[in-house]
């Protein structure tokens, strides 16, 4: 059973998170192991399985990035690879300067980079919404491919932010 199926949802990338949360509460009330203490062991086991799918599913679908990664994985895309290795070409210059600033632990510069990267992430997230909607309409692999590219870039920038945060 996919996470979407567990919640009775279409496998779409645009999700109404409030609705998802309400479905989660409703299903939890029915399926939680606490409701099956007096039932036979097999039913208890099923409740445990179903509830864990529900909980794992909520965690995954609630977050747009995890949700997109989940859908990519379902379609056979490799995710989680090339985390920090290849620098996206358009970021080459920034990464070079950032490394200098990190080395000198130049607080002012680092703060500047942080703000800049945060803005980039915001931009990416905004753009993702459009890509999600496009995929939901087309259901095409090409759109997933595009999303995958954006997610990789996003993860790369996120790692840079983490690097800055751990140094200041």
């Amino acid at each position: 059973m996919t996470y979407f199926e567990a919640f009775g949802l279409e496998p779409k990338l645009v999700v109404d998170v409030d609705d998802l949360q309400q479905r989660f509460y409703r299903l939890s009330r029915e399926l939680h192991p606490d409701r099956f203490t007096r039932r036979p062991v097999e039913e208890q086991q099923q409740a445990l399985e179903k509830t864990s799918v529900l909980n794992d599913g909520l965690r995954t679908l609630k977050d747009p990035i995890r949700r997109a990664e989940y859908v990519l994985k379902q379609h056979g895309f490799d995710i989680g690879e090339q985390r920090t290795k290849d620098v996206p070409p358009e970021l080459l210059e920034e990464v070079f300067e950032l490394n200098m600033a990190l080395e000198e632990s130049d607080r002012e510069q680092l703060d500047g980079f942080r703000t800049k990267f945060a803005a980039m992430l915001g931009e990416i997230d905004g753009g993702l919404q459009g890509l999600f909607a496009a995929y939901d309409a087309s259901q095409s692999r090409d759109d997933l491919q595009k999303i995958r590219g954006v997610l990789n870039r996003r993860r790369y920038i996120e790692n840079l932010v983490q690097k800055i945060d751990s140094s200041i």
Binding site: P33, L48, T51, S52, V53, N55, D56, L58, R59
Partner: peptide, 8 residues
């Protein structure tokens, strides 16, 4: 802080 039951 993952809601339990949780699995991987």
């Amino acid at each position: 802080n993952s809601t339990i039951p949780a699995s991987a």
